[in-house]
């Protein structure tokens, strides 16, 4: 019974890592280390994008298998960092299950930045990259306004659980239409820089990087699947902005 609870706890940590956006390599490595710390003689774990399968062999010769199917992901690096620290503590001190459960609950409740800060981050990214790609102060301002629009759409899209690929296309199209409308009003600005600033908001940077790291680490299945999704998202951005280019 106790072993079953430990296995469930290991999966809880793995699941929390996966939903927060950690790489497969890290998830499997963490689960194996914890399993070994708790004295299982063999730990077999397989993680593929949205599912974890875990089998452990106890010193008494029994084996236990549990699986998890993960549906929701919400990138949260603070959570990954804390989970990483927790698993270090577990491996070093082998604490009681209650301790692990308590800390896991605390980590699950790690708060995200407030909406105001997120809005500010969107403005920071869009405006700074507009300037980075050759825009001036006016372009940066327009880019900032457009990024607020993108943020609002992202929030709505997330709330109604819109397909992320389609969501990217919609956001790009909306930003494109906004810029197009302004230019039809006769305002003079550098369209390219503004749009590129907004492109940068939507680039699936984390997915591309973690897919690459998964592939290097030998997790080809997850790596390729995530890579395909990330590339589709990038294509969706381009398709979304096609609205602006066709209209203009």
């Amino acid at each position: 019974m106790k072993d079953e609870k430990i296995v469930a706890g290991m999966l809880d940590i793995g699941e929390a890592l996966l939903t927060s956006g950690a790489e497969v390599n890290r998830i499997e490595d963490t689960i194996i280390r914890i399993g070994e710390a708790y004295g299982f003689v063999r730990v077999d774990v397989l993680t593929i994008t949205a599912s974890i399968v875990l089998t452990v062999h106890t010193a008494q010769g029994e084996s236990l298998t549990q699986t998890r199917r993960i549906r929701k992901t919400e990138i949260n690096m603070e959570r990954v960092d804390k989970l990483n620290a927790l698993s270090r503590t577990i491996c070093e001190t082998k604490p009681e299950l209650e301790y692990v459960e308590q800390h896991l609950e605390l980590i699950r409740n790690t708060s995200h930045y407030s909406e105001a800060v997120m809005m500010l981050a969107y403005i920071m990214v869009a405006a700074s990259f507009t300037v980075f790609f050759g825009g001036n102060a006016v372009d940066a301002l327009i880019s900032a306004i457009s990024s607020i629009l993108v943020r609002l759409l992202v929030r709505i899209g997330t709330r109604i659980r819109m397909n992320p690929i389609f969501q990217n296309m919609m956001c790009a199209a909306a930003a494109g239409l906004f810029v197009l409308a302004l230019s039809k009003l006769g305002l003079q600005f550098n369209t390219d820089s503004i749009v590129i600033g907004n492109v940068m908001l939507l680039i699936p940077g984390l997915a591309l990087t973690s897919a690459l790291r998964d592939i290097i680490g030998g997790d080809l299945i997850t790596g390729s699947l995530v890579m395909i999704e990330a590339v589709l998202k990038a294509v969706a951005i381009a398709l979304g902005f096609a609205v602006l280019l066709i209209g203009g």
Partner: peptide, 13 residues
């Protein structure tokens, strides 16, 4: 500034 914005997206602190 752009990098910091991205870090905030991912809830880095």
């Amino acid at each position: 500034i752009g990098s910091l914005g991205f870090a905030i997206f991912f809830n880095t602190r």
